[in-house]
Amino acid sequence: MTTSLLTRPTLSHLDWLEAEAIHILREVAGQCANPVLLFSGGKDSICLLRLAEKAFRPGRFPFPLLHIDTGHNYSEVTDFRDRRAAELGERLLVRSVEDSMRRGSVVLKTPGESRNKHQSVTLLEAIEEFGFDACIGGARRDEEKARAKERIFSFRDEFGLWDPKNQRPELWDLYNARTHRGENIRVFPISNWTELDVWQYILRERLELPSIYFAHRRPVVRRKGLLQPVTPLTPAKPDDVVETLSVRFRTVGDITCTAPVESAAASLAEIIAETATTTITERGATRLDDQTSDASMELRKKEGYF
């Protein structure tokens, strides 16, 4: 029954990351009374759904899916979100930033202001509404400096606040998901994945993605060194030069603050080849809201952002 040291198999890096993520998801199921998985239709949360299938099938997921919709998402992505949840036969909850605006809990400084950071308010309202004690998300530590120190099980107080100086120590794979009423834990099963790992996993598992992840032609203008799509929400200004370029999205967030990159990559293999040789980090290339200062993400996280 025992094999020699020489023949004992070891896991490939993707197999290891997958096994770790499944272990984390099952810990949530084992430790938390009322968890939820945040599913946006983006590539990271698409991976989470596949990992949840591997963790819990043939059973149902022990949590519903939740999307915080800014109302400014690409329809290709929200259509995909609805279809994927239906295919899986799992319950999808959608809560909208626009509802928070109607309630008055979100007040925009200007009508055109990005709603991205206001997702935090709507998320906290949804947590309170449903009494969730854990929210599973697709954030990765390689995305940004402030995330590099985030725990896999990250504690938030009853205001949803993250205190970087007061995080629970996290050792081995012994996760502590205990909370008092009103507090919750954010759980990041793919913390240890990089953007390249995500693409490789999507390829290996043959996961379907919203079409805008692949190269397509789209009118854009150049701003702050990034491409801004020209849409009814983000129209061109009078002196803008509108170009129609072949682009793809590396991340698909709120229309007002997610920039595509110029690319001809129309298949997963081509995207992986580009990712492996890229010279710009995912956030740097695609986020119009993280460029303001070195600490933008840290500040938003402290306020309850994912």
Binding site: L11, S12, H13, L17, A273
Partner: peptide, 9 residues
């Protein structure tokens, strides 16, 4: 940087 031979993590 594409793994040709995956030697784990």
């Amino acid at each position: 940087r594409l793994p040709e031979l995956d030697n784990g993590l």
